[in-house]
């Protein structure tokens, strides 16, 4: 039963991944991306890392995929035919993708993974992960916070500048 579910989820995420790169309409790509995320989140659940699966759903599907929706808004209108992809770009993408795969594969094959112990919920609990983030992995955690802060500030600056450019009254129009 579990093997069946595992296989099904793998197939789903692979199909999603293929959809995400092969289809021409950008929104279809996005749906494929979402499908791949869902599938891999399911795989993570079966592997016992519930919290990671949750974060995957919450961040990738709830955050990144939804943010991509905004990009879809700027894409070609639906009724227009898409241009064919230039072979150079396709080749480049394939190159980068397979390069990444080789590196990851190499790491996976050469690295040593501790064997999964008996189901230990406490290891994957939010509490445990939180403690780890603030003790052993404090530096990466802070670095990520800094990165996010910079990103937020940057977006605020970009938003302000574009606001100043056009002559719309920004004062006096206020809600709440």
């Amino acid at each position: 039963m579990v093997d069946l579910a595992f296989g099904f989820l793998i197939v789903v995420s692979l199909a999603g991944a293929v959809m995400a790169v092969a289809l021409k309409k950008v929104f279809h790509n996005l749906i494929g991306f979402g499908l791949a995320i869902l599938g891999s989140a399911g795989v993570t659940v079966i592997l016992g890392a519930e919290f990671v699966a949750l974060m995957q759903l919450l961040i990738f599907l709830g955050g990144i995929a939804i943010a991509m929706v905004f990009a879809v808004m700027m894409s070609t209108p639906r009724e227009q035919d898409e241009e064919d992809r230039s072979p150079g770009r396709v080749l480049g993408a394939v190159g980068i993708g397979s390069g990444f795969m080789v590196v990851v594969g190499f790491l996976m094959l050469s690295g040593v993974f501790p064997a999964a112990g008996p189901q230990d919920d406490a290891l994957f609990s939010a509490q445990h992960l939180g403690l780890l983030l603030l003790s052993d992995y404090a530096l990466p955690f802070e670095a990520i916070s800094l990165l996010l802060l910079a990103a937020i500030l940057g977006s605020v600056i970009v938003a302000r500048r574009s606001r100043e450019d056009d002559d719309l009254p920004t004062e006096g129009v206020e809600g709440v």
Binding site: G34, L38, E50, F51, L54, L57, L58, L61, G62, G63, A65, I66, D121, F124, S125, A126
Partner: peptide, 13 residues
């Protein structure tokens, strides 16, 4: 275990 987060995660779907 993290039921609360899961509920919100499905909201994105």
């Amino acid at each position: 275990e993290s039921g609360l987060l899961l509920v919100f995660a499905f909201g994105g779907v």
